[in-house]
């Protein structure tokens, strides 16, 4: 309630209205931001859960993938590596596409693995499409290891494809996680600022202005009371004076006539002015 924690304003009724409006705005903003923060942290926790799951399955997938490769090497011999390498034509079979997902107004980058066929890739996201595109590109390498180890190579390929899928998913989740983390931090800072700084300051200002206005009113009231009291006193004095005047008119006639004239005039003047003030 110190003077520092309020706006530096002139305490008037207009300013009070303005500040009150601002206060209402701040409170509404606080509520909205709070909702946003809640939504974000809900998503945040979901993503966290998914990350843990994906990481666990990642380990599994990688393990089985590299073991599938071992199996292929066992059956096909070490030289099969070069055969596979040479059948690659430098075009990526799986591409990662990035797009933005919107959570409570926060843009979250997402990655999606899709096959090389750009037409199919453009038609929509999801893991289902990779299956269809690989089928078209597979025919080229499917005869690899025909003599020995072909099945194992296909198995290995599938296993690594799965691992890659998980990897992309994990990357997507991690990026989303970081972005969300940043967004949540900012939103929370705003929420806290609104809750702990802006709103109290506005409230303080409102109460300050109200206090000042009350103070003014009380001052005014007191002044009026004073004036009234003075008026009453004056009226009484005048009455007394008139009474005494009427009692001994002759004695103080000259004196009273010369002295009371301007005094009476003054009172009259004050009276008139009082009337003015009162109305």
């Amino acid at each position: 309630m110190s003077t520092t924690n309020r706006l530096n304003v002139v305490p008037t009724v207009t300013v009070l209205a303005v500040v009150k409006n601002r206060l209402i705005g701040a409170q509404r903003g606080y509520k909205l931001l709070k909702k946003k923060a809640d939504a974000l942290s809900l998503r945040y926790r979901q993503i966290l859960k998914k990350i843990v799951q994906t990481k666990l399955s990642m380990g599994e997938n990688m393990k089985s993938a590299s073991f599938a490769w071992t199996e292929a090497k066992y059956v096909g011999g070490d030289g099969i590596k070069h055969t596979v390498l040479d059948s690659v034509d430098g075009k990526a079979e799986i591409r990662v596409r990035a797009y933005a997902d919107n959570v409570a107004g926060v843009k979250i980058p997402k990655f999606n693995a899709c096959g090389s066929g750009s037409l199919i890739g453009a038609s929509g996201g999801g893991s289902g499409e990779t299956g269809t595109t690989t089928a078209t590109t597979e025919s080229k390498s499917e005869l690899t290891g025909l003599g020995r180890g072909g099945k194992q190579i296909q198995k290995c390929k599938k296993a690594y494809k799965e691992a890659l899928q998980t990897l992309v998913e994990l990357a997507s989740l991690q990026t989303a996680f970081l972005t969300l983390d940043q967004a949540i931090k900012t939103t929370n800072r705003r929420v806290n600022a609104l809750e702990n700084v802006v709103t109290p300051r506005l409230e303080n200002t409102v109460s300050y202005i109200k206090g000042e206005l009350d103070e003014l009113e009380r001052e005014e009231f007191f002044r009026l009371k004073k004036v009234q009291a003075k008026k009453k006193k004056d009226a009484k004095e005048r009455e007394e004076k008139e009474e005494s005047l009427s009692k001994g008119e002759g004695v103080v006639k000259g004196e009273g006539g010369s002295g009371a004239g301007p005094v009476g005039n003054l009172i009259d003047f004050a009276n008139e002015k009082d009337e003015d003030l009162l109305f």
């Binding site: 025909l146 003599g147 180890g149 072909g150």
Partner: peptide
């Protein structure tokens, strides 16, 4: 063995 392997590995291919 080669015959069997080729058969197994070419199942489902365009061969």
């Amino acid at each position: 063995r080669r015959a069997v392997n080729i058969t197994i590995n070419s199942i489902g291919t365009e061969l």
